[in-house]
Design a protein around this nucleic acid. Structure first.
Lengths: 213, 213
DNA sequence: GAAACGAACATACCACGGGTATGGTGCGGC
DNA sequence: GCCGCACCATACCCGTGGTATGTTCGTTTC
């Protein structure tokens, strides 16, 4: 029984020392499957199969299913973070910049992966505390900083920054969910942006009127 | 082998024809366990045991685990709905009433059961669409109506009601989650209410300033 | 009034999926 | 050249959702 080297690997046997590549494959596979079928609806065997490995490899790189989920979470979050950071680099008027960040974040929230993994299943799978901490230095940090700038510039007298940022994020993610699940995303999207811009305008008008008095 | 009537029932054998009571027991048990251990972390056997029955009884009253979850969801939602309805019955100034509703909803969101079952796990377990529909006639309906009144009264020029209501709910539920998971709920709660009231004030000021022009 | 019927459960069993224990293989270090 | 470890596959265990079937007892029907 010689049969040479053709072991019954999941196909296209990877040689060796490609550990990080394997890890990335697993994360990509997890992101795709968690996005379409959810955390509970995706088995580890299927994730591993899509990455052309077995559960053994998976458990070599990750402690458990939750650990893999967190890796997928981070991967998705980092992309959005990069986009927001780029928008924030433009040096316009603070209020204008706030509008841009809001617009960009709304757009990011439309990504199915971000929506399901980060917004919806994140707090359930990871637990809210851990979910919050994981976002601290990423997309949420950007939004919080924007609001802090706004406050420092004089508007928003005495508004607690952290809390307000959370409120804004909550509202926006809800909005994005609404858009994504709408039968007519185009229309709802415009309506939502309109509403957000209007509200932002009202707050600005209120802040200025109050500031003048 | 006579042994009389003493069957090995899960203790305290219920006679018969107490079907609705059994159902309620199961729902109460589910609410309690889902609240503390989450949907995935709670087995049907444990739920049944707490209700002093077996899985057989559970599957007689509910199609599957998800069906039981929805029953628990409805039970929790109805309580909050009743409270909101009561607050809305007071006939004060519309803006004052809006403030009261916001305050009451925030308070309701602090209930661990409402927080975990309705806000967090609801959309994940039931799917967002179904979750949205299930809330339509309950707590969300109350908030949407309040905003509709506000708009009809002249303020909030041309704001889309449905969308705005979703934004408000999203922000408030996020706020409540933040409060509940804070190491110092008392302080964060006050801070949050302060922020919400301030923002509401800003919007009102903006609306009035804009309305005067 | 007893036989038939069905609601309201209990019991026994299966399949699937997360997790573990163990085995194998090739590369780097000495 | 052999040792050890990273890297991964295979085999297995067990908790859990779901199903199929059995059992009891009140209600109905003739």
């Amino acid at each position: 029984m010689i049969m040479a080297t053709v072991r019954a690997r999941p196909a296209s046997a990877r040689k060796t020392r490609y550990a990080s590549a394997t890890r990335d494959d697993l994360v990509r596979s997890a992101v795709a499957l968690f996005t379409t079928h959810g955390y509970a609806g995706t088995s580890l065997d299927v994730i591993a199969a899509r990455a052309r490995v077995t559960k053994g490899a998976l458990y070599h790189h990750f402690r458990d299913k939750q650990d893999l989920f967190e890796a997928a979470f981070s991967a998705v979050e980092k992309k959005v973070y990069a986009k927001l950071k780029k928008v924030l680099a433009t040096s316009e008027n603070l209020w204008v910049k706030a509008g841009l960040v809001v617009r960009e974040y709304l757009q990011s929230c439309l990504d199915p992966a971000y929506q399901r993994i980060v917004i919806h299943e994140g707090p359930v799978v990871m637990g809210w505390q851990r979910w919050r901490d994981a976002q601290e230095g990423l997309s949420f940090g950007v939004i919080r900083d924007a609001i802090a700038d706004l406050r420092a510039a004089g508007g928003l007298s005495g508004l607690p920054v952290e809390v307000t940022a959370r409120l804004v994020c909550g509202a926006l993610s809800t909005a994005a969910t609404m858009i994504a699940n709408s039968p007519d995303p185009k229309r709802v999207s415009e309506e939502t942006e309109d509403a957000v811009v209007r509200l932002l305008g009202l707050v600005r008008a209120g802040a200025e009127a109050q500031g003048l008095r």
